[in-house]
């Protein structure tokens, strides 16, 4: 493969990584060499460092594998039959795909918020307390639940109806409930897959503010289709693109940089075109 190198590919395989900069605050170090769903090669050559207390955004056209990369980071893809992965994902220097690592443990430390709000069919309180029960938390649950709901900017709206079903909330509230649920256990990393795609602009703004706040305490990786959103909230942005030259539809990382640099001064022609909206 290396002999017939497609022109789209970055020159040395990881030119997309940041230029010389200190690497000692990388919490999740993702290096996907090849990723397959069955015989379908979904992603290749994607190297993304996710830094402590920062927000890292993944952008790119639909189907380029943003969700796939994100789901790799806490081994959600293990649920997919025929999923195969080459490369490594290091969390605090340990390869989470190494032999003997329990994916369940990984997911406790690297939480996830999904595109569609997905509260459980129980009360609001139990939704948020779910992770606490999961971790066998012995302390004051009510306190933790309140803190999480406050952090998710939902407390004022639901404090009087904590026993109502989580499904009775509006879509935006449900999504904030899911965020509250995810942060109640204080995972170190929070993965968010298009968390605002089902929300109206106002709810989106609230969640964006929320993310900025949360990034003080957590490390966040987010997939978004909304370039302004990435520009507004993300410290770093990675642009993924689809490579069709080898017959398949394989996603790969084109460019990764500080959001400011990436949006103001994109290096790669594909990034330039995408940011200027020249792709259909």
């Amino acid at each position: 493969m290396s002999t017939a190198m497609p022109p789209l590919r970055p020159a040395n395989g990881h030119a997309a990584t940041l230029p010389a900069e200190k690497r000692d605050d990388i919490v999740v170090d993702c290096h996907i060499r090849e990723l397959y769903y069955g015989s379908f090669k979904a992603v290749r050559d994607t190297e993304i460092p996710i830094r402590k207390n920062s927000i890292t955004a993944f952008i790119g056209p639909s189907g380029c594998g943003k969700s796939t990369v994100l789901r790799c980071l806490n081994r959600m893809n293990d649920l997919v039959r025929g999923f195969r992965f080459e490369g490594h994902v290091r969390y605090r220097g340990r390869d989470i795909y190494a032999h003997g690592i329990d994916p369940v443990a990984v997911r406790r430390f690297i939480g996830m918020v999904f595109q569609q709000p997905n509260p459980f069919a129980t009360s609001i309180f139990n939704n948020v307390a779910f992770g606490l029960r999961l971790n066998g938390f012995k302390g004051d649950r009510a306190d933790k639940v309140e803190k999480a709901l406050r952090a998710a900017a939902l407390w004022d709206e639901v404090k009087d109806k904590l026993n109502k079903s989580g499904l009775s909330l509006s879509g935006g509230q449900q999504q904030r409930l899911c965020i509250a649920r995810a942060i109640a256990t204080e995972p170190e990393v929070l993965l968010m897959d298009e968390p605002c795609s089902a929300l109206d602009p106002i709810a989106t703004r609230r969640i964006e503010e929320l993310m900025t706040e949360l990034s003080q305490k957590f490390t966040i990786a987010i997939v978004t289709h909304n370039l302004q959103q990435a520009q507004r909230v993300a410290d770093y942005t990675g642009f993924l693109y689809v490579d069709t030259t080898q017959g398949g539809r394989t996603g790969y990382l084109v460019e990764f940089n500080h959001s400011k640099h990436l949006f103001e001064d994109p290096q790669h022609p594909h990034t330039q075109q995408y940011i200027r909206g020249e792709f259909s």
């Binding site: 340990r94 690592i101 406790r108 430390f109 992770g131 606490l132 971790n135 066998g136 933790k144 204080e186």
Partner: peptide, 16 residues
């Protein structure tokens, strides 16, 4: 693994 930062709540699954 991960004992490094067991948060106040977050634990790897217990033995039980």
């Amino acid at each position: 693994l991960f004992d490094a930062r067991a948060g106040e709540v977050t634990q790897a699954p217990s033995r039980g």
